[in-house]
Structure formats: C-alpha cells, structure tokens
Design a protein around this nucleic acid. Structure first.
Lengths: 249, 249
DNA sequence: CGCAGAATTGATACATCTCAAGCTGGGTGG
DNA sequence: CCACCCAGCTTGAGATGTATCAATTCTGCG
C-alpha cells in the first residue's frame, strides 16, 4: 500500500459525499441538504500549504472532505504545539467568531467543503438540527483535547508514540475499510516533525521511540510511511491507558 | 484577605443569581428563566469531596454557582492530569451522553445549579438560545483546552507556574472586583498537588518554581494561599506567550 | 548522479523527577 | 496551655528521561 493518491475532488452532490453521515450535515434531511448545497464550495490545499494563520480573520467555516489538516499554536520563540488533527468529516472554524485562534496547515492534499461564515450562521439559526450536530462534534473535540492533555502532561515518550499510533489506527479504520487479510495497518500521513509537535517531543525522541518499538516487534514500517501493526492489544498496553482488552474501536 | 468564607447558597431566584449573565442561561428572557427555575435544584459539595467518577452514569448537568470544581483523568497506575478547572458559571456535563468522561471533585466548597439531564435536553431542544449559548461555552472550553495543550507540551516548569497564576488572576478578577488600592491579588483555591496535576509537574517542582518566582519578586504570598502580584506585565512575560503588554483581561 | 529534505543514530547536557528529610500552621486532647 | 500530630508544603541530593548538538544515512526526485 503506497501513500494515498488523493484524486482531486470535484464533488457537488451532498448525497454522494464521502462524509455525508459523519460531518456536521450528518442528520440533515434532503431538503436541508439542498440548503447546504446552495451555499457550499470546495477548496483544495497542497501538502504543507498554510490554510490560515492564528489571529487572522477567517470568513469561512467548513468540513474536511478528504486529507488531513493540522491545527497548531506557536510561542513567540518558535516552540510549536499541535492542538488538533483534522480528519475527513472534522469541522474547522467557529460560528460567531471572526478570527481563528490557531494556525491551520495541510498535512496532505486536503479538500474542504466550505461555507461563508455569515451564511452558515444564518443556516444554523434556522436549522437547530445542524446546530445540535455541531454541538455534539464540539463536545467530541473537547473530550479528545482533554484526553490529549493527559498524554501531554503525564505520559512517557514511549507511551506517547504508542498512543498516537492507536489513535491513527482507529481514525483510519473508521474511515477506510482495508482488506483484512493484510492485518491492521494505516498510513502515517504526517512527518516526524508533525508527530513531535503533536506529542510535545523533539523529532529525535520521536525517531528513537519509533525505532525502539519497531525493534521490539510492535509494528513494522513499510517505506517509513505505512505502519503494519503486529499486535494491537500490545500496542494498546504500551499506550498506557486503561487496557480494555485490545478492542479496535 | 483570608480564604473565602463560602456562605452556603440557598438561592432560588434566577434574577438574583450571581452567574445570571455568564452561565448557560445568560441570554434567556424572563419567561425562559421561569422554565429553568421550575427544573433546577442546588447541590453543594464540601472541599475534597468527589462529585463524580469517570465512566459513571450521571443524570445531572448544571452550572457552578459558587466555588471551584476540578475535572481530572487518571491512568491505571495512578498518574493524574487535571483537564479542567470549573469556576462559577462554567458548565458541567454533556447533554446526549449519560456517562461522564472525567473525575469531578470539589476544590473548595462548591455549589451547582443542576438540572436532570433529560429535562435539560428537552429544554434546549425547544430553546435554541440556550443551545446556542452552550455551543459558545463549549467552543470557549475547547479553546482553553487547546491553550492548555500548548502549556503542557511546550512550556517550562517556570512558565507553567507563571501561566497558571495569570489564568487564575484573570478568572478571579472577572468574577470579583477587589479593592484596587491593594493591588492585584487572588486566592490560590487549590493545593500544590492540584496545581501539579494541572501543570503536568510534581508537587516538588511546583513548590520550587513558586519559591523561585517569589524570591525574584514577581509576587508575594500571604499565608501561602493568597497571591499578591507585584508586576503583572512581568508575570505575563514569564508565562511565555505573546507579550501583549500586560493587559489584564 | 547528485542534491535537499527527512529521518536515524550517537554523545552529552540539563530540566525535572524521585527519594528523603525537615518545616509550618492549625487542630486536638491531656 | 502546652505537647503532639498531621496534612500540606519546602528544601536538598542524586537519578533519569528527554533535549540538544552533531554526524550520518536514507529517500524521493530533477
């Protein structure tokens, strides 16, 4: 399995959209989808491209349709911390605010289904179902952020790497069903630097811990970019959280 | 200034409520407040008391009216990380979920204005204004959690302490207007252990850094529990984030 | 083929943790 | 009223995990 080829999306029909049942529009009726279709537009960014800078005015909000985007904060002296990893169906932006609080960059080629913020605000004001879905998604992100706080504050470098791989395996398998005969595996969409920024480590430590876990047979790497997990339960154990017996989802 | 005396609340009228204009009910009209008044009830917990355990069924949601509550997560081996600090007007619980994801404890005597979750859900379903306010508050908490991720992942112990004091000074001054002639000051409602758990440090490191900053004249401590800040701008600088010139709020 | 960015590996430094001892203030009971 | 106690806090000395600095080695690509 090579890294994803990422064909450029030219999607227009919501009913065929890959994130139709997961995104902010998940609970919409056909009539409500038509409302959305009238005001949506697609935007695609190339890997490494900056989508927005923290503090910038951003008059758009929207969902990741394809690819991965990164949210990060930077201290004045350059230290950086990733604070969010946006997978397909995740929502970017905040209705009711006109600046964005974090830097947003494209990790891979990434396509958004965007709305003008003012139009989206009008829409949620008259469509409580969408507002409710957005509330659910925001609570989910808050829970995820808090879980990440536990990782950042209390886990060792080894546990951090194992936890990251667990999360990425779960998120990937929720989105893509891969042939089961090849075992559990997922692409590492992000660089060592992005991993380091997500985990609050340096790239050297990330590299050393990946090497150590690999050496101990927890996974193998295909061309340094695809992880093949040998024993998911053992990886979960290394992640340090409650060992719930190795259930994937 | 001694630690707060915390008179027990026997509040019943929303219109006199100290958090009336900040909590989830902030935008409610008098008629909507009546709806809330019918289903609300007060609960008070004593310092140190456990309010709920992570994973537990919790059929209540509500707002902190008075006092401080702590949200934390624990790893199987006992390492703990605080993931939230609930001040008056902050909301606890998640409509649409019947378990709570974190441990909740009382740092001080703390009083909640609670609702049965099912009743609150019915209420927000017919009162989009409350749902909208809850969405705003959840976005604010998400932003705060992400800022905390930057602290946990990238700041030094010294910066962490300075940042905590900045946050506590801001939150305290937003709630209580203190006589200006005595300079900027706020009570440390939480123990060194809670600070350590919030900052991802040990209590020894917290203690050493507090001593160091105190020695350098950034603040003084009154009976080890009230912080008198000598130079807020300097404290902000020590916190490491963008030095925006020492504005309090 | 050779270059540039990304990743690995090694040697050393240092911030924070760990373990241990002592201090402080408030409460209790003789 | 004083001696004691205990939880919370401080301070010290040494251990350790991760950062830092510095080479190499990979990998993809023109």
């Amino acid at each position: 399995m090579a890294m994803p080829s990422a064909p450029r999306l030219t999607q227009t029909k919501c009913s065929d959209c890959p994130i139709r049942h997961r995104a902010v529009c998940a609970q919409c009726e056909p009539a409500e989808l038509e409302d959305l279709e009238r005001i949506k537009s697609y935007r695609t960014y190339t890997p490494g491209e900056t989508i927005a800078w923290a503090g910038e005015r951003l008059s758009l909000v929207g969902s990741v349709v394809q690819g991965i985007a990164l949210l990060s904060s930077t201290l004045p002296d350059g230290r950086r911390q990733m604070v969010g990893l946006l997978f397909p169906s995740d929502f970017l932006g905040r209705p009711g605010r006109d600046t964005i609080s974090h830097d947003v960059t494209a990790a891979t080629q990434v396509t958004f289904c965007m709305f003008q913020k003012v139009e989206f605000e009008r829409l949620i004001a008259r469509t409580p179902k969408i507002q409710r879905r957005l509330l659910e998604m925001t609570f989910d992100e808050l829970d995820a952020a808090r879980d990440w706080m536990l990782l950042l504050g209390r886990k060792t470098a080894r546990e951090k790497i194992a936890s990251l791989f667990v999360i990425m395996a779960r998120r990937d398998s929720a989105l893509n069903s891969r042939p089961a005969d090849q075992g559990l595996r997922f692409p590492l969409y992000i660089t060592r630097e992005a991993m380091a920024d997500y985990l609050g480590l340096t790239i050297e430590t990330v590299s050393r811990q990946i090497s150590a876990l690999k050496r101990e047979g927890l996974f193998r790497l295909e061309e340094n970019r695809v992880v093949h997990i040998a024993d998911f339960a053992r990886l979960l154990e290394e992640a340090g959280d409650d060992s719930d017996g190795g259930v994937l989802i």
